[in-house]
């Protein structure tokens, strides 16, 4: 039986972008406010899962040919290397530093901590793991992690 899911698919096309934008907002809110890499990563993967639900798994893997396991590995590497940078600067592992930027367009002083690179790694790792688990269960082949 063919399921009529036109509404879900149409909504998904729009909503995915809203979710992704929200994820980016959450990601950058992370330093002093609720948010950060973990939550950002989860929201990104929720957008991907919505796409999986609305379309089928073949379509999504065709449009986004990503190996999620590689993303996980890369994410962990990025996070670890930001930690390892402390060996170069002779500060304790995982120390953070701040950078002050002047953004010309929005006319605002913004403040970026080195934690953000670490958070990018965390987000990648979270998206990678979540998607690996979901895809491997839903693919019906069921190869573990």
């Amino acid at each position: 039986m063919k399921i009529n899911d036109v509404i879900l698919q149409t909504v998904t096309k729009i909503v995915t972008f809203i979710i992704l934008t929200f994820a980016i907002y959450l990601f950058f809110a992370g330093h002093h406010n609720p948010g950060g890499g973990f939550i950002g990563g989860l929201v990104i993967s929720s957008a991907l899962i919505l796409m999986l639900l609305a379309f089928d798994i073949e379509t999504v893997t065709q449009t986004l040919p990503i190996n999620y396991k590689v993303i996980t590995g890369l994410g962990v590497l990025v996070s670890l290397f930001t930690g390892m940078a402390s060996f170069v600067f002779h500060v304790p592992f995982l120390s953070q530093a701040h950078l002050h930027f002047y953004m010309p367009i929005v006319n605002e002083e913004i403040n970026i901590a080195t934690t953000i690179i670490f958070e990018i790694g965390v987000a990648m790792a979270v998206v990678g793991t979540t998607m690996t688990v979901i895809v491997s269960i839903s693919r019906n082949k069921g190869d573990e992690e």
Binding site: K69, V70, T72, G73, L74, V76, L77, L80, G83, M84, F93
Partner: peptide, 16 residues
Amino acid sequence: ILPIVIPFLTGALLVL
């Protein structure tokens, strides 16, 4: 930290 980071790093590399 190295005895913890080295295997972790290697593990992440091997996933690639």
